[in-house]
Design a protein around this nucleic acid. Structure first.
Length: 289
DNA sequence: ACTCAGGTATTAC
DNA sequence: GTAATACCTGAG
């Protein structure tokens, strides 16, 4: 646990806003100087861009270089992925030009599960608030630059938290879902460590769906945004439904578009990169309005 | 007062 | 299987 720095000089597909505000994470916040600071694992990292490259600095548990390469998915060739997807059609091409600096982070599976359970039928400011309060109450303290940050609580740290205590943090009806899911994971009723060993995405998905509060959309977000890193899923929320209807389906009422319909279309059009296609389209549509 | 927000669980055909 | 409905909370 010590202060470290890492300057990434050569890079592609790396834009701070695109990465941190494309909807995949909840714990990265913009600073006055336009850098972003976030907590992941036992690390507090500040990321900024300058003429020399991308600068990462902060409190890091292990070697910062390897930590950053892993978390920011730096070994993946996003350029070729974007080229491939851009050829599919002009809509996708435009959305990729808009979000050209997106990278899908390798976020801790447990944290991603809980975060997206909290996201259900909720809005982003409130989701972020709940996650911060949960971390402050049950996580570990880390100090960086005179400010105090808190790690996301582990399953063990939430072991004895009651439904009432969750409710006090403002979780609303999601209190039971956190309580039950934490119990199921601690019991190994669902062995989340083992999920990384399962090849078939649908099989992993079915395991996740056993968790209380994890439905299809949340399961797909977990598959896409966590270390599970499955790109062959297509999370459908209101924005994705809207953009898919407007671009390809053209029904007068987007609520009449079924999930199956969208999923089949996505699979046919985008193939095994559908998850990334979803992310570019989602971000584009949500930002443009 | 009322609607809406990164949906899910439950119940009833 | 598919459709309808309730659900915490806080911001606009």
């Amino acid at each position: 646990m010590k202060y470290q720095e890492f300057l990434l000089e050569k890079y592609n597909s790396f834009n701070l806003k695109d990465i941190f505000e494309c909807g995949q994470c909840f714990r990265w916040n913009k600073e006055e100087d336009n850098s972003y600071t976030g907590v992941f694992g036992n690390n507090v990292i500040n990321v900024s861009k300058n003429e020399n490259g991308i600068l990462f600095k902060g409190i890091c548990e292990n070697d910062i270089i390897n930590t950053i390469i892993d978390y920011f998915d730096l070994d993946r060739d996003y350029t070729s992925i974007k080229n491939k997807l851009s050829k599919i059609d002009n809509n996708l091409k435009e959305s990729i030009e808009f979000g050209e600096g997106i990278r899908i982070l390798n976020q801790d599976l447990w944290e991603t599960i809980i975060s997206f359970i909290i996201s259900a039928n909720n809005n982003i400011p409130r989701i972020k608030g709940i996650i911060e309060r949960l971390s402050k109450e049950y996580g570990q303290k880390i100090e960086f630059k005179g400010k105090v940050y808190y790690t996301f609580p582990t399953p063990e740290e939430l072991k004895d938290v009651s439904i009432e205590e969750y409710r006090k943090l403002g979780l609303g009806f999601r209190d039971v879902r956190l309580y039950e899911t934490t119990k199921m994971i601690l019991n190994k009723e669902v062995d989340i460590d083992n999920l990384h060993n399962i090849k078939d995405t649908n099989e992993v998905r079915n395991e996740l769906l056993k968790l209380m509060g994890v439905g299809e959309k949340v399961a797909d977000c977990i598959l896409l945004f966590s270390t599970l890193k499955r790109f062959d899923v297509f999370p459908i929320d209101v924005w994705v439904r809207r953009v898919m209807n407007d671009l390809y389906i053209h029904k007068d009422d987007e609520k009449k578009v079924t999930k199956r319909e969208i999923q089949e279309l996505a699979k046919n059009k985008f193939g095994n990169l559908e998850g990334l296609a979803q992310q570019y389209l989602f971000y584009w549509r949500r930002e443009i309005g």
